[in-house]
């Protein structure tokens, strides 16, 4: 009799009034029954502490509020926006528009290419590239004028110009390309220069230059970065013609040089900030006189 309430759910059934009347009667005869009943009666007097329902809800409300604001835009809007974006990008991808950046007289421009590489453009220069090519890992751009490249490591990086092609893997180099002047300086790593006639590989401190139809020259230099980045334009044994062209680009001036020999070689640097000073640094060593009239400069022999 006494052991009847020892199965493992007996007390649960008792509390739930699920005992049969016989079970209940025999249970009530036991001494334990009173003790259980006393515990159960006493338990009625317990309750959990008050719950600050409103306060907690306010907190939840605050914390979820930001999100709620966003949610007010219905989901189909996101879907619509996503499909439009997808459509546009597909069209864009297929047609592949060209990105072009260019600088005017005396301007410089810093660009970050889609792969993270950097380009610094000198004045009167431009770069053009196809975005879609870059996403396909084909890092190619066209350069006109002068640019300094800091290339992120990765697949081949090519700079195309009318004078030739420069290919690298990850390095820093300067390319200057005009219709008749082509110069590449390698500041770090290895650069491959390729034009119609030849192929050259430059390492740090080596330069490659080709002027008009003369054969190409290789040279060395010791600078850490191009002078023009510091507001100077420098030349090493360059015909005066190109020095003056560069000067015109920096200062947006027209130079009349019909009276002087443009094939004299010039080595030196001029500032990009002060025209008079720049003219002096070019003209003084070559014994040339200059007169400035607004944006026209006339050069003559001394």
């Amino acid at each position: 009799m006494k052991n009847e309430h020892t199965d493992d759910t007996f007390l649960s059934r008792w509390l739930n009034n699920d005992l049969t009347s016989e079970e209940l009667v025999s249970f009530k005869k036991t001494t334990e029954y009173k003790e259980y009943q006393k515990i159960i009666d006493a338990t009625q007097n317990f309750k959990a502490p008050n719950f600050n329902e409103k306060e907690v809800f306010e907190k939840i409300h605050q914390k979820t509020n930001d999100k709620k604001v966003k949610k007010l835009i219905p989901n189909w809007m996101f879907a619509a926006a996503a499909s439009i974006a997808l459509l546009l990008s597909t069209v864009y991808y297929l047609t592949g528009t060209n990105e072009t950046y260019s600088t005017s007289f005396g301007e410089q421009l810093a660009l970050v290419l889609p792969d993270g590489s950097e380009v610094l453009l000198n004045s009167k220069s431009s770069v053009t590239y196809k975005k879609s090519d870059w996403f396909n890992g084909n890092r190619t751009l066209e350069l006109n004028g002068e640019g300094y490249f800091k290339v992120k490591k990765g697949s081949t990086f090519s700079v195309l110009s009318e004078n030739g092609k420069v290919r690298v893997l990850g390095t820093q180099f300067n390319v200057k390309t005009n219709p008749s002047y082509f110069e590449v300086l390698c500041y770090e790593g290895k650069v491959q220069v390729e034009n119609k006639e030849e192929l050259a590989i430059l390492t740090k401190g080596l330069s490659f230059r080709k002027i008009e139809n003369k054969s190409s020259e290789k040279g060395t230099f010791i600078n850490e970065k191009p002078n023009w980045l510091d507001g100077e334009t420098s030349f090493n044994n360059a015909p005066l013609k190109y020095v003056l062209e560069e000067l015109e680009k920096q200062y947006n001036i027209k130079i009349n040089s019909s009276n002087i020999d443009l094939n004299i070689l010039y080595t030196g640097a001029f500032t990009n900030i002060n025209l008079n000073l720049a003219l002096q640094t070019i003209c003084a060593p070559l014994s040339i006189q200059f007169t400035v009239d607004s944006n026209k400069v006339v050069l003559s022999k001394k």
């Binding site: 759910t9 649960s12 003790e35």
Partner: peptide, 21 residues
């Protein structure tokens, strides 16, 4: 539900063992 009933039973049983007498 069976597990709940077992826990209930054990809980009450243990309470009585502690405070019963």
């Amino acid at each position: 539900v069976k597990a709940v009933e077992k826990r209930m039973h054990l809980a009450l049983k243990q309470l009585r063992e502690k405070v019963g007498n």
